[in-house]
Amino acid sequence: MLSKLKLSILIGSFLILAALPMITEAIDEPFYIDLMARVMIFSIAAMSLDFILGYGAMISFGHALYLGLGTYAVGIMAHYEVTNGWLQLLVCISGTAFIAFILGLISLRTSGIYFIMITFALAQMFYFLGISLEAYGGDDGLPIDTRSEFFSFFDLNDAWNMYYLILGTMTVTAIVLWKIINSRFGMVVRGSHSNDARMQAIGFPTMKYRLAAFVIAGVVCGLAGFLLGNLTEFLTPEYMHWFRSGELMIMVMVGGMGTLFGPLFGAFAYLMVEDFLANFTEYWQFYFGPMLIILVLFAKQGLWGMLPGKEDMSDE
């Protein structure tokens, strides 16, 4: 179970996020709604990565691929004037699930360094595919003219509706993933993290469990891409670039690897630091690179991990 402190931080953050549109309207700074919407989308993506990385020890270095696939699902369907949100969602989920399944079959045959390099190369393959698809804008990308349409009374062109859809998705995703991690299924995946040979000896086909976890993470990240496509109204292969995958890993690490809720804050911290440094200097990566190395070496437990109250593996 979560410690009281962590639970109150989560509930507090949720309340602040829920009230944010009212606050920004009161102080007349609507810009922050968009910024936080973006942060929350990356939070969902980072959380999905932590699900396989922190709990399943699958160091996927190509996770941004699914973010890109989600935006492509929205973008390509909108391009052909299919704007029904439910249909788009169906295509997005089944498409990302299918690709995650195939890529999982290939990459999960390996482990360790091989797994890192293969997920990296396979994601880059889709990035180059996106660039060569001239019909969908190539490397320039393509504007998405219409946002997804769900209900007639819930227009996503309204900034508040968009914001609350993202907040709702993030909250539901966090709860569902938390349930999965603490379920029997999650226990098997975590067990295979600690000692795969022993899990197999007990009789669990761990490969199937790991593959299922890989697909779940891909689909959740695809959902984040679905929201990202709607928010930015733009489709671009750039979201599939390995650099984005690296950023997602940084968010997970900064938040705390193997703590499901840490990456929520990791995404916030990373995007804020990036924004701050980019305003301060054109060469922000020059400062961020060494900062990252120092963080890795000395503050590995991440923000969430620094809080008292360990999320012990034996917790139910």
């Binding site: 160091i59 360790g112 961020f288 990252l292 890795v296």
Partner: peptide
């Protein structure tokens, strides 16, 4: 490996800039 990936990713950012 996770630490190695992230730290050397930091190196890439540093050298590219």
């Amino acid at each position: 490996h996770m630490d190695q990936v992230l730290a050397t990713f930091g190196l890439i950012l540093f050298f590219n800039e």
